[in-house]
Amino acid sequence: MNARRLGLARLGQYAIVLVVAVSLNFALPRLMPGSPLALIAGVEVGEMTPEERAAVTADAGLDEPLVVQYLTYWKSILTLDFGYSFRQGTPIEELVLDRLPWTLLLTLTALVVAGAIGIALGAFAAWRRGSRWDVGSLSFMIALESTPQFWLGMLFIALFSVSLGWLPSFGATTPGVELSGLAWAADVAEHAVLPVLTLSILSIPAVYLSMRYSTLSVLGEDYIRTAQAKGLRPRAVMLHHVVRTALLPVTTVLALRLGWAFGGTVVIETVFSYPGLGRLMYDAVSARDYPVMQGTFLVFTIAVLLANLLADSLYPRLDPRTRV
């Protein structure tokens, strides 16, 4: 009963955050410099006649008062009608749904890979604190953390695509070829290897560092000494007591990254010319394509909120102290 009331209160908080985020989403593109008219019409604003300008503006609904634009915006969101891209004329939801699977293929795979490796390496480093292994892996991870994404991506392209010719360097599928079944899956996998690899490698340090730190603090806890004094095997102490408790803060890190995963990764997708949400967003921003920008931002916002909600509801399951 009490728990349900608390759950409702929390949902209420999320609803408030969502309203604020959607409103910002509406306002931000309109605060940016530059007029979208040029892009819609395909010519510079200065070259248009006032009549032409007015027609284009009215067509896009940009002549209405802001309040009306805002309400229209809400109405369209609630009816899942996100409008059309200024530039391409395609419905937004079509664009987003087209791109989302590709992005998720990259980011979720990378998240799983980086999560597993980061947790394992972080726990191991902490367990062997001060050893050569710990110091070595820690320095390596810090170096990796400061490696630019585009640099590593381009290095991989130069190595695996250009020099060795093992893997394709761009796109999600081989263009101009119709494949089906396993052959298609193999083609997709082949294209995904390099971006996933780059993204995974660069995501490991954050997980590793938080897991290592969290494990170190758990190792100093009195209940670890209790577990040892019970005569448990080191592996049982490590798994049931150390890692189990050390995972708590890392879970939050991972859940939040899950939200970010929906936003795609602008740099990686651009380097590998991958047709994901990140590139859609990048193109929309550089073209001042409001509806597309708002559509992608909205997906991103909702994903982050859902991920937070997930982390919130997951935490009491993992840590009984936070249960009501």
């Binding site: 009195d222 209790t226 005569g231 049931h240 007591h241 009984p320």
Partner: peptide, 23 residues
């Protein structure tokens, strides 16, 4: 290990921090 816990039992000072909070 076969002695610890089986033949020698231990009780520590602070029972809050000496018990694992998640089990």
């Amino acid at each position: 290990r076969s002695v610890r816990g089986a033949e020698i039992g231990v009780v520590f000072q602070d029972p809050m921090s000496s018990l694992n909070p998640v089990h």
